[in-house]
Amino acid sequence: MSIETSPKQSWWNRLAHPGQFVIWTRPFILPLAILTAVLLALGVWFAFFNSPADYQMGDTVRIMYVHVPTAWLSQFVYATMAVSALGTLVWRHPMADVSMKAAAPLGAAFTAMALFTGALWGRPTWGTFWEWDGRMTSTLVMLFIYLGIVALWRAFDDQLRAARVVAIFTLVGAVNIPIIKFSVDWWSTLHQPSSVFRADGPTMPGSILTPLFIMFFAFTFLFATLQLLAMHTEVKRRRVMTLERRAARGEAA
């Protein structure tokens, strides 16, 4: 391995420096937050005042506008974590660690929300809060995986070491999630041959799609905003740790 004395100042290198990353991405936060707020307000308005009740599900279809985006995020956040884990393991990118750590609690929160709205949607349509249906069950398992990863982060004192170990576990989880999904689907069809009512009808009228799309983007942008903010906090927290360590060493000497 050769040691470059003057690193190239590509955008990649700039992003690799935590301080530079914060400077470069800080201007994005406010516009993203405003965009999120506008989209959320618009989405809620559409969801309640400008969309019809579904002819089959009635007004409960309105729960979909918060359920689908959170369920999407529960998987998208894990994908973000898995890509960041690759960044940690393959390129040793310092911001990948930070991104991985910031995403885990967000993913857990969105997964919990997806389960909550799913239960509230299931009560009127299936007649029960909890159905051991393939999707709900695998979402529950996802929540456990997220919480395990958060617990693993907290178990380490040294965050750099934690990042590499958590990255390995995140990738192991990423390999396993499709297997878990498959097995849970197999299991739930085994136990209930008459398939429960499923919401993914092939034809959705545009009047339902509009609020769904708006909410979808609102939640995705919300995740992006929170992720950036949490990453900045994490960078600062590492700086605090370094300073504290230096202060402790100074006092000891």
Partner: peptide, 12 residues
Amino acid sequence: IAPILIAPLCVP
């Protein structure tokens, strides 16, 4: 923590 991490993976 090890059992908590492993239990979801052992579901299949």
